[in-house]
Simulated scan of single mutants.
Amino acid sequence: MDFDFSDEQMQLRDAVQRWAERSYGFERRRAIAAAGGFDTNVWRELTELGLTGLTIPTAHGGMGLGAVEAMVAHEALGASLLLEPLLPLHVAAAVLQHHADAAAQAAWLPRMAEGTLVVLAHVERHGHHRLDACTTTAVADGATWRLSGRKHVVPAGDHAAAWLVPARLDGALALFGVERGAPGTSVTGYPTQDGSRAAEVVLDNAPGQLVCRDGAAALAWAQDVGIALVAAQAVGVMDRTLALTLEYLNTRKQFGVPIGSFQALRHRAADMKMALELARGMSMYASLRLATPEAQRRQALARTKVQVGQSMRFVGQQAVQLHGGIGVTDEYLVSHCFKRLTQLELTFGDTLHHLGEVAARMTDEAGVAA
């Protein structure tokens, strides 16, 4: 199998990298984080680059690209520590493409390609990463539906035009679209620990549109797409983290020589590189496995989150330790890399949760013969 990128994929990667290097430097990112974690000018620039419509079909005004192209773009964006919620937008677009009817797709996908932000709002308190942990309810009200419940850590929820909300309908999970600002909705935004933005969303008999009745399948698909994109961004962050660490090891001197010449530190840097490459391979594996049947896909994406989560933790911790005190200061980029990796490790289920998912899907053939 050929794992080399095509010319078009390399051009996409280079275009995103050029934008990040030119327009999304560390100082601009720090200013955006200090201002609340979302910049409308950056969002407009991402839209002009076509990135909001990256995976949306051309029939709906998007670029119509696939999972590998999304991986390439998000890896480059990960290296820039992008704060704006492009990843949640792509997850919501994937859900609409695969689980919404033609009318809902025609209503939302063209607008999303043009930069309208729609995000998934599925996390509830005490859910512990379980997709079926949902107490939000939906009841019929004529031709529409009324939703009541509370959703937590909704990415950039106070900037979204609408949320995709799972709710209990006749005892089963269904997925609804709820517009921000509709009667019965309230939203409270706040910055997250990595500088990005999230919100608490409260629904009190709020009107919603039914997106699909099989909410469980839609959420499983959303989580798997999200894990693949998180893995890609994590690889980009770890690549940047390792580069900064190597630069520091070759610059910082003790006893008149760079500390990178010390064998013990060189070994630790080599271990960071190995962890990064393990994550890179799993990121590619995840993107390719999105096209497989659900059982295979679910197992593959859980495996990916376990390995990438372990790599994120190792690379982040080693980088901070090798830098010493400067590695945790706000003025230095490595501390922001570490915080970003920490938040990505918790996104769409942490490592321990997905280790349980992997174990639950092991077959007899995967064990050791008695």
Rank of each mutant, 00 (worst) to 15 (best):
L54Q: 00
H74N: 08
L333R: 07
A100H: 03
E21Y: 08
E27P: 02
K253S: 13
C134N: 02
L290C: 08
H353A: 12
A133L: 12
M63H: 11
P155C: 08
R268A: 03
A286N: 04
T188F: 07
I32R: 02
S311W: 10
Q317V: 11
S80H: 10
T342N: 12
P191L: 14
A231T: 08
A217K: 03
L301Y: 00
M362G: 02
V368H: 05
G142E: 09
Q17G: 04
A172Q: 05
V230G: 00
A198H: 15
A31P: 12
A156E: 00
A15D: 10
S196E: 01
I326H: 09
A198D: 04
A216W: 06
G157L: 08
A140W: 08
R268T: 11
S311R: 01
K253I: 11
L120P: 00
T116R: 09
V358P: 01
R340G: 04
H267W: 14
P191E: 10
V328E: 15
G184M: 10
Y248S: 13
A106N: 06
G78Q: 06
V91A: 01
Y24A: 11
R146E: 05
G50Y: 13
P57N: 04
E277S: 11
A161F: 12
G78F: 08
A269F: 07
Q296V: 07
A106S: 12
W163L: 12
S6G: 14
L341Q: 02
V211E: 03
Q9K: 15
Q17E: 12
V306G: 00
R361W: 05
S80R: 02
T292P: 10
F338E: 02
I56H: 01
L87S: 03
E69K: 01
M10R: 12
